[in-house]
């Protein structure tokens, strides 16, 4: 998927490869259906594949489309962009891929999780359901966290992303208190490799930390640092920033491009034709703690109008079966549909 991103103009081989695979899988499914329904297998398999447009689930084209739209938006001046994230909870499978990829992308230390996935259970045994809710920074339009910063170390950019100047933050953690979403956390200086923290190697560890952590987030870039540039992040507050360093390079945020369920969308709200706008138009979306008036930039889609990835796949197979079998058997099949199979 990342490869697909690096070729934003759309490498046909990669796309087709994926599509072929899907086609094969679907055919396989159709064949199985055929086998189950008698001696029709060969004839079913010989049929041409259905047109690609009929496949609702085409994650790669979504990613390519979002990347293309992202690059189009980058041509506009900063203040005309409005980045939003749309998370389709029906597709979230609670795999934590976004959390992991975020940690890998931003090299966050233990204790810092920009994008946790909250999991809770509803219902009683045996009718239980697990609910998943990824929680990035909401990048509020009315951020409660920026005005409380006593040293102007955090602010909302013109494109709606709330950033922290890590070189200026004094570590008072007042913004952590003010955030209603728990999206800010403090870097207490723990390392994933504790041996490097103390002892005879500690001196080298500090240097290594600076050298090793060549994450774009730490480097003095026009996107993060103020006049102070960016120093070490120990002792100060950190948060999700929609991977500005990736966005500004024309690449989707890490959590979006690695979401295996295709649940996370990213785009420009000011582009009326963008995928995020399309989704927001089509489905009802909600935002977290709307009653606080923080106007978050992260939307969640839930409820009717779609299905989980798995049921969507099932629906695809159903559709395909219907399409093929209908063509083959016409009215005989249609009659059989209601009557428990083919006669």
């Amino acid at each position: 998927m990342v490869d697909g991103l690096r070729r934003p103009n759309g490498s046909e081989t990669s796309r087709l490869g994926r599509r072929e695979f899907l086609k094969g899988a679907l055919l396989g499914a159709a064949v199985t259906v055929g086998v189950l329904s008698g001696d029709l297998s060969l004839r079913v398999a010989a049929q041409p594949s259905p047109p690609a447009e009929s496949l609702a689930l085409d994650r790669e084209s979504e990613l390519v489309r979002m990347t293309r739209e992202l690059q189009e938006s980058l041509k506009k001046p900063l203040q005309e962009r409005k980045w939003v994230m749309v998370i389709d909870l029906r597709r979230c499978v609670g795999c934590h891929s976004c959390t992991v990829s975020c940690i890998a992308e931003n090299k966050t230390p233990p204790g810092i999780t920009y994008r946790p996935v909250m999991i809770w259970e509803t219902g009683e045994y045996p009718n239980v359901k697990l609910n998943f809710l990824p929680r990035p920074c909401m990048q509020c339009d009315e951020p409660p966290c920026t005005s409380v910063c006593p040293v102007n170390a955090t602010w909302k950019r013109e494109d709606g992303i709330v950033v922290i100047d890590y070189g200026k933050c004094i570590g008072c953690r007042y913004c952590v208190m003010a955030c209603p979403y728990g999206a800010r956390s403090t870097d207490y200086g723990y390392e994933w490799v504790p041996e490097l923290e103390h002892g005879p190697l500690a001196g080298t560890a500090a240097k290594e930390r600076q050298d090793r952590v060549k994450s774009l987030e730490y480097q003095p870039t026009p996107w993060y640092g103020g006049p102070y540039g960016r120093g070490d992040t120990i002792g100060i507050t950190r948060k999700c920033h929609f991977c500005i360093h990736r966005i500004e390079s024309g690449v989707l945020p890490a959590c979006v491009s690695t979401c295996i369920g295709g649940a996370t969308y990213f785009g420009d709200l000011n582009n009326p034709n963008s995928l995020v706008n399309e989704l927001l138009r089509r489905y009802g979306a909600f935002r977290l703690k709307e009653e606080l008036g923080t106007e978050p930039s992260v939307y969640y889609i839930t409820g009717e109008g779609g299905a989980s990835v798995i049921s969507e796949l099932e629906a695809m197979v159903d559709r395909y079966r219907e399409e093929v079998l209908l063509r083959e058997f016409g009215g005989r099949f249609r009659a059989g549909l209601g009557g428990g199979g083919l006669e």
Binding site: S147, P150, G171, C172, T237
Partner: peptide, 26 residues
Amino acid sequence: PDLGRMERFIYLYTSPNFSSWIAIEA
């Protein structure tokens, strides 16, 4: 000592943000 970056406490006086009560208090 509660500040994660003690040495930067001087920023409260060099670049205060008076919409924050911590800066007003300082």
